[in-house]
Design a protein around this nucleic acid. Structure first.
Length: 632
DNA sequence: GCGCCATGAGGTACG
DNA sequence: CTCATGGCGC
């Protein structure tokens, strides 16, 4: 095999980390190996949960480079989160002793970069700001008041949802009115063009625009498109079931010329249709690339067979998409338990008892091996209370993100407004921080513009200058714990500012990169703690022990999903994602009675409980096998 | 310009 | 019940 010869030629100064294709390929199973070795042309990898998908992607990249199919910088790998991109990048870099690296990026960062460079072709200033959800909401509010509409009827949040989903379907502000049906949508049709005009005036793009404007650029400027088609000769896209229409089109455009595109996904793990994802893109791809080759990764390395059986038993109730049946060689010692509790407090107590027992029986088990998964964040409160009461450390994932925090957003608005004075949304926010303060800030801005600080001063100098001039920190009282936290966050922001001395780069970084933010609880227990999070947040993770709580109709599946089959199927996929997080043991719990939003009510066990394999239900005394329960 | 109270809504969430 | 928001009074 000529891989052997090539492995020694380049990149192998450091024997410890240099990539050796022949070694690496030996460690792959035959399905994985086939997927790695097929380099040319369009291909689709259906990768089940825990099937080593990341591994395959990384080895594909390394193999391409090692086989000299292309240079590293001719490879583009697209992921959905910065976290995933960072991990991929880290793992690839470890094997490459070279400065020439592949581009690993999210769709949004990639598009932002493309637009900074070539957006001028379609009238986009290279200095544009990126509006996040909060800015978008403020913009919609502006439009609503400008158009003299009643904010109670044109609820900004609802309006924005419609605009965003229109954008996801690539319907622009001019054509939307043709699609609008009914009173509300017609109202949105009148707001959408105003909203879009306002963004333009502000020299701003929202996240959806990043994708749409890039598509517009590709459609109208062949040169720009060809530049990227030539640059990225090999393209890999992860989590393809999560792409929306615009992202689908982007991958199509970019790969049109070389057709070396590898997409990876899993129908059964599509859980983001509410934000525009369409798992049917996996099927559409086959139609658009009729000569594409298909590969399946069906061997699971994470869970026991009985966990996989449980997951399959549930997901096989879905009919709107194909299902990949997984198998494993893993030893099958596994707890699968269904537990009925009196109420949500007893449910939490059950978890604690169980955790204690498990840890007694198995000294190798630590708290960080354990996760409690729930459908919605509101469910975490009772769990937190009881864990706190029993002094069991936990870390809570979720909540307000770092860059969404008020104080962080305030400081960023100052900086963003300095770099782009057209941003009226930032201006409005700053005015709200006090007239005096804004006046002082304007004085600073005058210096900033006249003395060209943007080139002569570093981000941290500017940031500190603004803080000093506006006395912003005086808003907060060091003795107040909440304020203290806010001051801490600004400190944290300062350290990011030090990392990015160029203001424009700093702003680009903060609008596109979500920083890992740990809430206070985690700070107190940095090491070993139980993880509490939603099932959505758990995607991609694994734990030796998983508790899925609140398995009740109306909670999971969520009440708002019950009107459509497609929505219930998405809930079921979420259930599948939850189950497949577990390596060894899984516990499903539900309460007979639950207080939610201050309302106490009896609950019915989730339909998903009844979809678990009969043996498990029998073992747990939940063998309603007289057919479907009456709620169905 | 700040803070209080009434009101209303309440899913999941990446960039 | 809890949190965010907006209007209004001081």
């Amino acid at each position: 095999m000529d891989i052997l010869n090539k492995s020694g030629t380049s990149n192998s100064k450091n024997a410890k980390t240099a990539y050796k294709a022949y070694d690496a390929l030996d460690k792959l199973n035959s399905e994985q190996k086939e997927a790695v070795l097929n380099t040319e042309g369009p291909m689709i990898i259906l990768a089940g949960a825990g099937s080593g998908k990341t591994r395959v992607l990384i080895h594909k990249v390394l193999y391409l480079i090692n086989e000299e199919k292309c240079r590293a910088d001719e490879i583009l790998m697209v992921t959905f989160s910065n976290k995933a991109a960072g991990e991929m990048k880290g793992r690839i870099e470890k094997y490459l002793n070279s400065d020439n690296l592949p581009t690993v990026s999210t769709f949004h960062s990639l598009c932002a970069r493309i637009l900074r460079r070539h957006g001028v072709n379609i009238g986009i200033d290279h200095n544009f700001v990126i509006y996040d959800t909060q800015d978008q909401l403020s913009t919609v509010k502006e439009c609503v008041s400008l158009l003299d509409l009643d904010p109670k009827q044109a609820r900004p949040k609802a309006v924005l949802e419609i605009i965003s989903s229109a954008k996801n379907q690539m319907i622009d502000e001019k054509t939307y009115k043709e699609y609008a049906k009914g009173y509300f949508q017609e109202m949105v049709a009148s707001i959408y063009p105003v909203y879009q005009g306002m963004l333009e005036e502000h020299n701003a793009l929202d996240f959806d625009d990043l994708l749409l404007k890039t598509l517009e650029l590709f459609r109208t400027h062949k040169n720009s498109l060809e530049y990227y088609q030539n640059k990225f000769r090999y393209i890999l896209v992860d989590e393809y079931q999560d792409t929306n229409h615009a992202q689908y089109e982007l991958t199509k455009y970019l790969s049109q010329k070389n057709k070396n595109i590898c997409i990876v996904g899993d129908f059964s793990q599509s859980i983001y249709s509410f934000r525009g994802a369409d798992f049917r893109n996996l099927e559409k791809f086959k139609r658009d690339f009729p000569d594409s080759k298909a590969f399946n990764l069906s061997q699971n390395y994470r869970s026991t067979q009985s966990i996989l059986n449980a997951a399959y038993s549930v997901i096989s109730n879905n009919s709107l998409h194909p299902i990949l049946k997984l198998w494993t060689d893993n030893e099958s010692v596994s707890d699968l338990v269904i537990h009925e509790a009196d109420d949500q407090h007893r449910e939490a107590e059950f978890i604690i008892e169980k955790v204690k027992k498990l840890m007694n029986n198995d000294p190798s088990l630590t708290l960080s091996d354990i996760a409690v998964l729930y459908r919605m964040n509101a469910q975490s409160r009772t769990l937190e209370e009881i864990l706190l009461h029993h002094s069991i450390p936990y870390k809570l994932i979720g909540g307000v993100r770092f860059y969404d925090r008020r104080e962080v957003k305030d400081v960023l608005s100052y900086l963003s407004y300095l770099s782009n004075a057209k941003d009226k949304i930032a201006k409005k926010r700053l005015e709200k921080l006090g007239k005096r303060r804004f006046k002082d800030f304007e004085e600073y801005k005058k210096d900033f513009d006249e003395k060209n600080y943007i080139e002569n001063k570093s981000t941290i100098e500017i940031l500190d200058g603004v803080l000093k001039k506006t006395k912003y920190l005086e808003k907060y009282d060091e003795k107040d714990t909440e304020d203290m936290g806010r001051l801490e966050n600004i400190k944290e922001l300062r350290s990011v500012a030090i990392e990015f001395p160029e203001l424009i780069q700093f702003l680009e970084n903060v609008s596109l990169v979500e920083q890992e933010y740990l809430p206070d609880q985690t700070m107190e227990f940095p090491d070993d703690a139980i993880t509490l999070m939603t099932m959505h947040a758990a995607k991609g993770l694994e734990f030796r022990v998983v508790f899925m709580v609140g398995m009740e109709e109306g909670i999971f599946p969520h009440s708002q999903s019950l009107f459509s089959i497609a929505d219930v199927e998405e809930e079921r996929r979420l259930c599948y994602v939850g189950i497949t997080r577990a390596k060894e043991h899984i516990y499903f719990t539900f309460a007979r009675e639950r207080t939610i939003f201050g309302q106490r009510a009896n609950s019915t066990p989730s339909r998903f409980i009844f979809e678990l394999p009969e043996e498990i239900r029998e073992l747990n005394g939940i063998a309603y096998d007289a057919g479907a329960p009456d709620f169905l």
